[in-house]
Structures are given as C-alpha cells and as structure tokens.
Design a protein around this nucleic acid. Sequence first.
DNA 1: GTAATGTAGATTGTCAACAATCTACGATCA
DNA 2: TGATCGTAGATTGTTGACAATCTACATTAC
Lengths: 226, 226
Amino acid sequence: MASVSSPSVLLLVRSNSLPSLIQVEIEQLILRGELAAGQHVNESELAVRFGTSRGPIREALRALEEARLVRSEKNRGVFVREISVDEADEIYDIREALDELIGQRVAERATPEELRELERVVEDMDGSRELNEYHALNLKFHDLLVDFAGNARLTESYRLLTKGLLLFRLRGLQDGGGFAVSNTEHKAVVAAIVARDGARAGQLLRQHAADSRARMHKAAALDPPT
Amino acid sequence: MASVSSPSVLLLVRSNSLPSLIQVEIEQLILRGELAAGQHVNESELAVRFGTSRGPIREALRALEEARLVRSEKNRGVFVREISVDEADEIYDIREALDELIGQRVAERATPEELRELERVVEDMDGSRELNEYHALNLKFHDLLVDFAGNARLTESYRLLTKGLLLFRLRGLQDGGGFAVSNTEHKAVVAAIVARDGARAGQLLRQHAADSRARMHKAAALDPPT
DNA sequence: GTAATGTAGATTGTCAACAATCTACGATCA
DNA sequence: TGATCGTAGATTGTTGACAATCTACATTAC
C-alpha cells in the first residue's frame, strides 16, 4: 500500500514534481535496506506501488543513477549499487578532506545558539544508553555540523558521500560490529569549536572520520571478502 | 542537423543507453553556451533535434538536474542553471579542499611516466602564445592531476564542481578578463610533486585554486551585479 | 548425461497521444 | 487610459501501448 504519511500532501504535490517525490521515496527504500544492495529494481513493480506509470519511475531512477545510488545496465534495468571496500575508501578520502573543512568553518562562524545546540546533542549522547538512540544522535550531530558550516553546496556534497557510505554499511556490517564511536572525540571537537580554534577543530574532525574509516576496515576484515 | 561524429556509433548505442548519450550531448550544449545560463530548455525542440521522443530527453534532464546543471520548475519546465557569485564561492570552498587533497595524493603516488606527462604539459604552456591553446592546456593540466590522484570518486566529484564553475564563467566574464593564469604557479606545483613533497604540493595547489577564485571576484566586480 | 537450440514469459526501451497547466494577447468594462 | 477577464496556443506531465531484448526452462541432438 502506498502509504501517504503527511497530512498536507497536496501542498507537496503542488510544488514538487512527481518524479522528485518518487526519487526520495525510492532513496528511502534503498537506504533502509528494503531494496538490498545489488538487487534488481523492477520498474513496473514500483509503478504499481506508487500508483503511477513507469515514466516518472524511470525519471527518478535516472536521478538516483546520477547520485550513484543505483547503476544501470542497458536492456537489463537498474540495480541498487553495492560499494566495495575500495570504493568506500575512495569516499573516505574525500570525506576526511571535507570534514576538516567543516570543522574549520563551524569554529569560525557558528552562532552562540548553534554552539549550545551542539553541546546539547553531545550531552544527550553521554546520557544515552540505547544503541538506536545513540546512533540517531550521532547522525544528528554530524548533520548539524555540516549545516552550521554555512555552505549549501558543501552540505549537498557531503550528504551525497554519506549516502554512498550508508550503502556500504547496509551490506551487512554495522559500524565496526558494535557501537565503538566514542563520545570523547565529539566532545573534543565541540571544545575546539567553542574555543574558536578552527585549525584544531578541523584536524579533530578529520581524525574522527579517519577513525570511522578504520572501524569500517576492521568490520570488513571479519567479512566474506566480496 | 543531428551530427553523428564518430564512426563506431553503433558500439556506443549498444552499450550506453540513449538517455545517457543525450545527457552528455545536452551537457555539451550547456557547457559551450549554446544553451545560455538562465535559458528555458524546450523538451520538444531537443526531441526533434536528437530525433527521439520526449521520454529520453526528460530522463536526461532529470540526471542533469541532479548534477545541478539545470533546475526544474513544476509545469514550467527546466532552465539552465545560473550561478551567483555566492554560489561560486561555495564551490570554491570545496574545490580548494579537494585541490589540496589532489596535490598531496599525486605527489605520493604518481608514476615516473605521469610525472613526465605533467612536466610536458607545463612546458607546452610555456611555449604557447595563443589564448585558446593555452586555455586548453591549462584544462588538460588539471584534468591530469585529478586522474593521477588515483581516486575515481574524487575525479567524479571534482569534475562535477568544475562544471558548476564553468557555468558561472559562461555568464559572460572570462577568467579575470584576460588570461592571467601564470604558468609559474603550475611549475611550482609540478616541482613539489616531482620532489615527492605532498604537503607542499597540496598547499600550492590549494593556493592556485584560491587565486582562481580571486580572479573570479575581480571579474565579477566589473560586472552588473546579478 | 551434457551441450546446443528453441520457445514463452517477463522486462526494458521508446513512442505517440491526451490531459493539465501556463503564457501571451486581445476584448471588455469602468 | 488602465485594469480585469477570457480565450487560443504552446508546453509540460502522465499515461498506456508496442517493439526490442533478455532470462529461464524445456526440448532436442549427440
């Protein structure tokens, strides 16, 4: 059943086009693993699911292909992309550079209110005892950071890379097999930001990304080598 | 006339899908300025031009929208994107970070043969007296650098950003009004790379991008403030 | 038993037509 | 004169149908 969640759907359909709505919907399907990595995506199936014809579906899939979330083989259709360790490494190379940039910029330009918001999230993580909650807060923390960097295009690029990485994690392994992400690193980053030490904040955030990469490698080593 | 340039077109049509071919074709139209920034893109017009129906055209346009080369307004169609100075600045923020990464990586991993190729291009630029030739060599120089960084995803991201910038330049102004790009900077970069000094190569390449940004600002200041 | 061949069903690629919406321009009225 | 309304043409949004291609399975030949 094509569940319609929001109450004011009409407003969305007025401003956003149908293909773009379908695009985010399929993206959610992929990111939640309902469409597994490597799986073939059936156009007609999606069409009946969303109650449209195949046209808008195909347009959405083209956009997702450009976003590198799916790949397309002529006359065979589109497949959910699966990311190898090497490709994840490539993404991490870029992400580390962007994280450094983010740290610098946030330290330089975050408003006092934004600083408080960052501190609050880190405190909440400290108090969190549940894995899901902790994970959500962690995502939120990094989301806030990019936003506070005050560069829309940077946000866009960063989110795109992150989605690619998520695609890898959904391949089965979960962040180093546990929730090893220590909150002490987050605290150090926030401290540097509050101190307006851009260089240090950038350095710490880059290292944070590097640690995440290391956890990925550790998890991949325990796994069937694809 | 839909000019068919290559002799082995059939091979291309066998492997690549029609929409993806149309996508690069439209992209060329935009990047060459035949479709001017801000201009409305007519689907039917392109359809007859490429000898297809509107379906594949629309798919290609969706991909170009995701690549941020066009924007789309519901029921009004798609328009070639126009980049403001602020947006170009955002892109330059990212590009500087990536250029530093590129410099580092190339210094660390370029093969002797690749080093020679870089040196050759810089020499050719020295000998060049024509603006077009110099410009083409300059583009080639930076293209080689990303390639030699040995990270496909980085290449992809970098090229995407560069296209966005090109979109800005085509708004009328040409690279600081002249060809101010001094070759001495290129030589310094290559020297650092040959010396395998990654840190310095990265720093120099970042500075090179920053200079390019400065030229853009200079040109924008002479222009009607959009 | 295995490999090659052939066929049926399913899926993608493309198209042409129709409905919905927008835009430009002229008519009408105060 | 100026503003409002309404209509005609053009353009986009979406659909259903058809052709081309692929995939899986059964049949045949060796």
